[in-house]
């Protein structure tokens, strides 16, 4: 099981702002989740992994190739599937035509075989019945699935998904997670999210990204353990906690350094995530999923 993605010290700057400030990442077969707040650099990282953006500095190997090299880039793109944030399609195309367009660009030259492949991926995401419907007539959830369908063309070895469940209702999100888990068998999937349930449900590995760096790498269980002994409940809100919020019947759930004699509870991924994000996590963290 070789490493599909090897990245060390990735740097990407926009003017004086560093979107990535020396990020390390290693990913292999299975689903790796990138967890982090907006502006943490997840989208920039994913665009780099999808060969859409070059890095300013750092070492990067995708599927054994160097994406800075034009030939290396082509090799990667042939075995890559990418679902960007706000995936757009020509609104006048039908679902079938929209995916067919991408299939042509993925060098599926033989018409018959290409059309069979388009049908295959549409069936895979449950859009087989709306193949002849125009994109503008599809719901948001369906368009998201259409995006996943085009990413799955050609059964790529590396699948890069940027916030694939954003804007979906809980039922759609569940269905999407099933598709992603299925896709993760025998393939490397890297997805970004700011929803901890996505991580818990599908990821075998999770990387917490904030401020352009990765601050944690490990399994979801290991992530939860980061908050071990640092989660407690109290009847009143404790201002010294890193984050605290109301739960159920008038108690407050806290994350941080517990005072002596506090009632500790088992840590979740969410707790660990908030701890890792640091003090800024406290502000504006009223409701959490």
């Amino acid at each position: 099981m070789t490493t599909t993605v090897e990245a060390t010290g990735l740097v990407k700057a926009y003017g004086r702002r560093h979107a990535l400030a020396g990020l390390d990442l290693a990913a292999r077969t299975g689903v790796t989740g990138l967890l982090g707040p907006n502006g943490a650099g997840k989208t920039t990282l994913l665009r780099i992994l999808a060969t859409v953006l070059p890095t300013d500095a750092g070492h990067l190997r995708l599927l054994g190739h160097d994406p800075h090299e034009p030939t290396g880039r082509r090799h990667v793109r042939r075995r890559l599937g990418y679902l960007p944030q706000d995936a757009g399609f020509h609104r006048g195309f039908t679902a079938f035509e929209a995916v067919d367009y991408v299939a042509v660009l993925k060098e599926h030259t033989r018409t018959r075989a290409r059309h069979d492949e388009v049908r295959r991926v549409l069936d895979l995401v449950g859009l087989g019945d709306v193949a002849t419907t125009k994109v503008r007539a599809l719901s948001g959830g369906m368009r998201q699935r259409l995006g996943l369908a085009q990413a799955l063309l050609g059964s790529p070895e590396l699948l890069v998904l940027d916030e694939p469940t954003v804007g979906l209702d809980p039922e759609q999100r569940m269905r999407f997670r099933d598709l992603v888990s299925e896709a993760g068998r025998g393939r490397t999937v890297i997805l970004s999210t700011h929803q901890t349930e996505d991580v818990a449900a599908v990821c075998s590995e999770v990387v917490v990204v904030t401020g352009g760096r990765s601050v944690f790498t490990g399994t979801p269980a290991e992530l939860a353990q980061v908050a071990a002994g640092r989660v407690w409940v109290d009847d009143d809100k404790d201002p010294r906690a890193v984050a605290g919020w109301r739960v159920g019947a008038g108690h407050y759930h806290h994350v941080g350094d517990p005072p002596a004699g506090a009632e500790l509870v088992d840590p979740t991924i969410e707790d660990a995530y908030l701890l890792l994000l640091g003090p800024r996590a406290g502000a504006g963290m009223g409701e959490v999923a």
């Binding site: 999808a50 890559l80 706000d86 660009l105 993925k106």
Partner: peptide, 18 residues
């Protein structure tokens, strides 16, 4: 012009040819 340009950017088709 191309609403799908992000996805297109990740494809192997020769960009010059396109």
């Amino acid at each position: 012009s191309d609403p799908a340009h992000e996805m297109v950017a990740a494809t192997p088709y020769s960009p010059l040819r396109l």
